[in-house]
Design a protein around this nucleic acid. Sequence first.
DNA 1: AGGAGAGGGATTGTCAACAATCTATAGACC
DNA 2: GGTCTATAGATTGTTGACAATCCCTCTCCT
Lengths: 226, 226
Amino acid sequence: MSEAAIQTYTRADEAFDCLQTAIVKGDLVPGEKIGEVELCSRFNLTRGPLREALGRLESRGLLVRRPHAGVKVVSVSAEELLELYRIRETMEGLAARQAAERMTDEEIADLQATLDSHEQMIEQAQGQAYYQAEGDYDFHHRIATGSRNTKLAQMLLGDLYYMVRMYRYRLSTSSGRPHMALGEHRRIAEAIAQRDGELAEFLMKRHINAARRNIEKKIREGVLTI
Amino acid sequence: MSEAAIQTYTRADEAFDCLQTAIVKGDLVPGEKIGEVELCSRFNLTRGPLREALGRLESRGLLVRRPHAGVKVVSVSAEELLELYRIRETMEGLAARQAAERMTDEEIADLQATLDSHEQMIEQAQGQAYYQAEGDYDFHHRIATGSRNTKLAQMLLGDLYYMVRMYRYRLSTSSGRPHMALGEHRRIAEAIAQRDGELAEFLMKRHINAARRNIEKKIREGVLTI
DNA sequence: AGGAGAGGGATTGTCAACAATCTATAGACC
DNA sequence: GGTCTATAGATTGTTGACAATCCCTCTCCT
C-alpha cells in the first residue's frame, strides 16, 4: 500500500512492458531491423499504442528509430557496458549514502531480512542464477528507493538497471561471485544500519567497482563476447 | 559534420520540442491539468504525434499522466531541486574525469575558447542572464559530450539539464555568481587540459556543490520561492 | 444540511484507413 | 562491367472517427 496501484493498465503500458522485457531478455536481437506490423502481430497489439511505447523506449535509449526507416534494438559494445558500471558506481554510491541517512528502521530491517533469504538461496541449491538475476537487483532496488531521492531512483530503476540486465542476459548468466557479493551486500547494509553514510557510499562504490572489474576480466579472457 | 543532421523532422519530434521548451520556460504551469485537445490547438498538432511526445516526456519525468485523467506538468519541490544538484555533483564529476582522459586537444581548445567568449559577455554588459542561461549549459554540455560516455551524456543532456533549466526559469533568472562560476570553470578546463582527471573531478564536484549551496542559501533567505 | 450514488458530458484510449517517405530492384547509360 | 537513376513496393507517419473511462453535477436519502 506504499503506492496506489495502477488504476487502468492501458494497451500502451502493455506494449511498453512486453517490448522492454523482450529487449532485456534478448528475444529482440540488437541491431536487427524490426517492423512495426511484425511487432503488432507478435504481441497482439495495434500500431497506435505500439508507437507510443516505441517512443518511450527510444527516450530511454533501449532502441533507436530512424524516421521512415524502422526501429532496431540498440546494439551495445563491451566498452559501453563497462561505462554503465562506472555510472552505477557514482550514482549508487550516492544512493547508499542517502539511504543511510534516510531509510526507516523498518526498511533497514527488511533489507537485512532480504539478505538472509539470499543467503539461504545460495546455500541451498547453487541458486547463483536466481541470486544474481533477481536477488542482486532486489538489494540495489531497495537502496535506490531508500535514498528518498526521486530522480535518482527514477534514473537507476527506470534506465540503468534495464540496460545492465539486458547485457547480463546476453553474457553468461551470472557474474559468478555470489558469495563474495553477498558479503559485500552485508557490509553495506551494516553501514546503513549504523547510519554511516560515508562508509556506505565507499563500500557501495567498491562493490560495483569489483563487479565491473570482474566483467572486464572475463571479457579479456574471452569468456564473455558481446 | 560530426553527426548526420536529422533526416526528416516528424510531427512527433516537433511536438516533443514544443512541449519540452514550453515546460522548461514555464508556459505550462506545473500541477495544472492540461487537455490533449487544448495542446493540439495550441501547437497546431494532431493527437497522434502529440500522444507520442507525451509518452516520451512522461518517460523523462517532465510530466505525469494518469490514464483517462489527463496530463499535468510535474510539480516540484525545493528539496527535489537540491537533490538534482546532488545527482549532478556525482555524475558531472565523473564526466569531468573522463573528459580529462578522453577529450581531444581540439575539443579542449574549443572549451577554453568558449570560456573566453563567456568572459567577454560578462565584462561587456552585465550579461549575467545570458551567461547563466546559456553559457553555463554550454560549458557543462561540452564536458558531458567530451566524456565519450554515451549513456552518461544521454542522462545529463537528456534528463537532468532540462529539469534543472525548468527550475532555473522559475527561480530568479541567474544564480548571481557569474564571476565566481567562470573562475571555477576556468580551473576545471585547466585541469582537463593537463589531463588531470582526478583534479577535474574534484573541482567539478566542488563547483556544483557551491552552486547548490548558493541556491540553498537563497531559499532559506526567502529570496527563492518555489 | 451533508453525504452517497447515479447519470450525463467531456476527455482519453484505441482503431483502421490515408498519405508521405525510404529502400530495393531493375534498367539504362557511360 | 560498373554505376547512376528511376520506379515500384513496402513501411512508417499522420489523420480523423469510434469506444471506453473518468469527473462533475444533480438528485435523493438519511
